[in-house]
Design a protein around this nucleic acid. Sequence first.
DNA 1: TGAACATTTGAACAACTGTTCATATGTTCA
DNA 2: TGAACATATGAACAGTTGTTCAAATGTTCA
Lengths: 122, 122
Amino acid sequence: MAIGDVECCDETYVHEDLLKKVRGKMPDEDELYDLAELFKIFGDSTRIRILFVLFEAEVCVCDLAGILGMTQSAISHQLKILKASKLVKARRDGKQVFYSLDDDHVRSIIRQGREHVLEREP
Amino acid sequence: MAIGDVECCDETYVHEDLLKKVRGKMPDEDELYDLAELFKIFGDSTRIRILFVLFEAEVCVCDLAGILGMTQSAISHQLKILKASKLVKARRDGKQVFYSLDDDHVRSIIRQGREHVLEREP
DNA sequence: TGAACATTTGAACAACTGTTCATATGTTCA
DNA sequence: TGAACATATGAACAGTTGTTCAAATGTTCA
C-alpha cells in the first residue's frame, strides 16, 4: 500500500482528493507541536489573568501576586512559562522585576477567544 | 484593610491607579474560566490537527483517523471535546458521521497563533 | 558586611488529560 | 432479523500540570 493511501469507510473515491488537499495545507509536525504548546500557555486561567493585567501596565511580580490574590511563588512560576514562550518580557529595576507584554499577537489571540466565548452563549 | 487595597513591594503609590485600571478591564471570573477552557482545547496537537483537516473539508471520523494515523476511538474522544466547545459540528449520513467547523473564529485564532510561532523563530 | 526585601527555583503532591482497550450504540442491507 | 460496518463511550493507565513549601539567589542600603 503506497504512502498516502487511506483505507476506511469502504469508500475510496473521496480520500484521494481529500488527502491531497489536506497534506498540501497542513503545517509540519514541528509547527503543529509549537502551535499546541503556545495555546497550552493560554489554557490556564492564572496565566490568562496575568496577561490581562499586563494589558494595562508593566507590573512587578509582587503586585501581580497582590492583584490576583496568589502566592509570589505561584506567579513567578507562571511568569517563567510566559517568558519562555516569548509572550512576556522582564526588566529588573533594583529589587523588583517588572513584566510586560512581549508580543502583539497576544491581544488579538485573546480577543478572538473572547468573541467565541461570548457569542456561543444564549 | 479595605477591599481592593494591596500591600507589597513597600510601595503604595503605583497600586491605586493600577488596581483601578485593571479591575475596570478584567473580565469576570466566569469569562476568564471559559476563555482558559477554550484555549485548552487548542492546546493539544491532535485537536489542532483535526481542525486543520476540517479547514479543508467536511470529514468523517474514519477518514480523520486514517489521515492522522490514529485510532478511531482516540479521534472520537477528541471530536466530542471539540463539539462540546462548539468548535465543530456533526452531521450523520447513514452509518457515517461527518464533522465540520462550527465557528469562524477558529481560523483567525489559529492564524494569530501561527504568526506568533513563526515570527519568534530566528 | 549583614539585614531586609523581591524574586527565583526545585521537589513533592494532588488533580487533570489523552490514549488504549473492550464494549455499547446506531445504521444499512441482505 | 442478524451480520457487518461506523461511531461513541467508559474504565484504566501513564504522563503532564499547577500549586505549595522550603530554600536559594539577587539587590539595596544602613
